[in-house]
């Protein structure tokens, strides 16, 4: 028993099928499995350009059991709004889920995301955040953290990570949460709570990528957990604007209980150019994110 759901009660039906072309240790593959376990056959998935486009595999077949609307990069939330509108008109049950990366969420797709949120359209947007444009070959995004190497930031990114969950919170949507592929039961529970709420729901799923972050594929879950244990990633949930730190992150409100950020940095190749001075800066940014978030609790 983890949280409110027992692992043995989770559906065994495979929504992500074996033989798909994801990289070994892929966090998006994990996320898709958990989405299936949480919401199953009710889902209609809207997928903008990204790694998941490739993970579907080649036509005339695909490696998933969700109905999927593939759509251009900057259109996902708007398409989802249309799907939801049609299903409302037809009186059909459907959980319309946007499955978008950091680009389709925070950058090229940001206006569309904000528009759908402001209108309160009845969809769930999941940002699968692997912190760079992985599908095109590891280029920096606005969600790449400070100091991280990418193929467009060879000496490390000079800017900080955009705080999209808080931006979505300021849209006053009824549900905002963060999650991590390292904490599947927490993610599944959040999905099951989100689906009960009518309106716009936003879930930001932290998704450590072995290919892009330069770590061994066996460590995907370990790196995801370290992000939480060092305070680099904070799990929270906000229903109607009221922020509650989620159980896995609760101990780390206390700064002294967090593992050193250096532990998280050193098992990934992408921070190899980070100097001690830059590490200090990164640490102060993490403190700042905690301070800002806890003001809303």
């Amino acid at each position: 028993m983890v949280g409110g759901i027992s692992i043995r009660e989770l559906p065994r039906k495979k929504y992500l099928l074996p033989g798909n072309p994801s990289c070994p240790g892929c966090p998006e593959a994990l996320g898709l499995r958990y989405l299936g376990m949480a919401l199953g056959d009710r889902v209609i998935l809207v997928v903008p350009a990204g790694c998941s486009t490739v993970i579907e595999g080649l036509a005339p077949n695909y490696s998933m059991r969700f109905p999927i609307v593939n759509v251009p990069f900057a259109s996902a939330d708007a398409v989802a709004s249309g799907v939801a509108a049609a299903k409302e008109v037809l009186g059909e049950d459907a959980v319309v889920v946007v499955w978008a990366g950091d680009g389709a969420t925070a950058d090229i797709g940001f206006a569309t995301l904000s528009g759908a949120a402001e209108r309160g359209d009845n969809i769930i947007h999941i940002c699968v955040d692997n912190e760079a444009y992985m599908n095109t070959g590891i280029q920096r995004s606005s969600l790449t953290p400070y100091g991280a190497w990418t193929t467009t930031t060879w000496t490390g990114k000079k800017e900080r990570k955009k705080d999209v969950p808080l931006i979505m919170l300021m849209h006053k949507v009824p549900y905002v949460a963060t999650a991590s592929v390292g904490y599947p039961m927490d993610f599944i529970e959040k999905l099951r709570r989100a689906v009960l709420i009518k309106g716009f729901k936003y879930i930001h799923l932290h998704a450590p990528c072995p290919t892009g972050w330069r770590f061994d594929p066996s460590l995907t879950v370990e790196v995801a957990k370290l992000a939480v244990e060092t305070g680099m990633w904070i799990l929270f949930e906000a229903v109607n604007g009221k922020v509650k730190i989620s159980p896995p992150s609760l101990p780390y409100r206390d700064r002294s209980r967090r593992k050193p950020i250096r532990d998280y940095i050193k098992i990934q190749g992408r921070f190899r150019t980070l100097t001690d001075e830059e590490l200090k800066k990164l640490e102060s940014m993490v403190d700042d994110v905690w301070d800002t978030l806890t003001k809303f609790t």
């Binding site: 099928l17 033989g19 072309p21 080649l58 005339p60 077949n61 695909y62 490696s63 059991r65």
Partner: peptide
Amino acid sequence: LPLSKPKEGISRTGTW
């Protein structure tokens, strides 16, 4: 039409 159906084992990924 640009439509596809689910299939297990599109690629023999065990060889990877």
